[in-house]
Design a protein around this nucleic acid. Sequence first.
DNA 1: TTGTACGCGTTATCAT
DNA 2: ATGATAACGCGTACAA
Lengths: 320, 320
Amino acid sequence: MVTIKDVAKKAGVSISTASYAINNDPRISKETKEKILEVAKKLNYHPYAAARNLKRKRTNNIGVFVDGFTGPVYPRIIEGIHAGSRRNNFNIIVSTGQSAKALLLERQVDGAVVIDRGLDDETLVHVAKHGVPIIVLDRDISGKNIFTSMINNEEVSYELIVSMIKKGYRKIGYVAGPVTSYDNLHRFKGFIKALTEYNLPTTYYYKGDFTKASGYRIGKEIIESSNDLPDFLFCANDEMAIGVLDSFRELNIKVPDDIAIAGFDNIELSMYCTPKLTTVAIDHIKWGEELAQALVDILVNNATTINVNTKGKIIYRESC
Amino acid sequence: MVTIKDVAKKAGVSISTASYAINNDPRISKETKEKILEVAKKLNYHPYAAARNLKRKRTNNIGVFVDGFTGPVYPRIIEGIHAGSRRNNFNIIVSTGQSAKALLLERQVDGAVVIDRGLDDETLVHVAKHGVPIIVLDRDISGKNIFTSMINNEEVSYELIVSMIKKGYRKIGYVAGPVTSYDNLHRFKGFIKALTEYNLPTTYYYKGDFTKASGYRIGKEIIESSNDLPDFLFCANDEMAIGVLDSFRELNIKVPDDIAIAGFDNIELSMYCTPKLTTVAIDHIKWGEELAQALVDILVNNATTINVNTKGKIIYRESC
DNA sequence: TTGTACGCGTTATCAT
DNA sequence: ATGATAACGCGTACAA
């Protein structure tokens, strides 16, 4: 392994001089600096992260911790975070599950964006308290050095429901995500607010878990086990909406004529399913960029608050 | 920050005893070990990765470096790699672009799976030579400590084309991915082999780049700028096939009646587009698991070869 | 079974 | 402008 020692020796300077040159310290003369950098290049020297991190007590890595890598939403947020991080010379490390926990606990990242329900509150609070700032998405948790960023779920859901009420729908149902999801919770609040305001029944409630499979199951159940059908279903995300669509197609329920449907997220599939899905669009990439910038501000500029909130935009298509 | 020193002091033992206990060294008595672990737990001690890595000269991290996080294929491979890594107590670090390069060069990973055209051969060869084993996918590159894993692209493509020839298709076209792609190259070879064998013209060739947009463009061009149309189009991946489908729909070309289409990858969308796409299924998750296992074998068991190849399976649907 | 002491590669303080 | 050296936290060879 080629170390800074080798560079120093070959360049005929001391180790500290080599280090200064490599780290752009101004007190090194131009010529020696150039000489050293040239040697470093020739030897293909790269600082050894483990040693540098140990000494500096930071890594220049930002962690992005997600539930999983599949799915239509996370990849886009990550893409954005990557762009924002690189602009600030931070590397991004994406991980999940136990890997993510280890990376956090053993301090292989300086800060993190967490969209991973699998990472327990206790761990997050602990590492945050000890100096690793954390931004959580879709989660209600607070503590020193923990920040949250959200979508205006409640407002936009409310707006969507009201617009459907004005179109004449009266028996409006909600296909819910997991109760642990902040997003789900606030979409539901908007839904309830609209129905309450218009004195409509709130009994059409179906419990899913954000997966297409749960939507499919719910679609079947609604049709097969009840004769009081809703006329419009607001699904807490697109994937469930598409699952419902699948089951309705099999059961010969016409959308939107028999039952109208809307989703949330504007995933790619929502444009390709039949009928095309009315949904709420989120600019996930831009959101990710802003998240990274906010984290960097905390890390290098000692910012103590963040203000990253993203606005959903309703996109009307064929399903309602 | 709580260090092993704190643990040792609180437990009333020396630093090395604490270290032994934490690392399961057999020479520590059961009671002292339990005592130490208890104290570590209470203090919420976690070894500091930077220090441990520096001393051990390894990180227990496996890097997964991809072109980008979006798209239907990578996330599934990553999911598999994660599962395989965790089984062996390795953490996975997913990254891209400059972040990935830095992570490699500064040795923040012990080994890596690379599916990132942006990482140049030179970098890969260099770090591999210096002891970081690399498995590359969809790429032709060789060197010490560099391994490759592939799909049986050529065979399965050949098989697909032959089956179409037997159905009576004669004017068979190829919608190509980037020429830098090994996958594309071998799918093309299978295509050519079949056509040559059956004495069919190989003039229907269209140059895309694996994106849906390029497929869309090609679809338009084929119809608008030529009066000698192919009767079957084999697309080097599903995304381009779906782009072609989109353009054909707009141009009122019936699939498969006017022109039949097949893709490759069996992405989720291929089941939802109209008509449903005939394609080649790859079990990406299983592939990822095997990749991780192979890398671990190299890392801990000093394996010097790998044998991870995945077989595509043709799935006939409506598009041909 | 446990403790002492050194070294990993780097940065940074202090002296020259 | 440059060099000598201590320190970061951990693991381990060796001594006891």
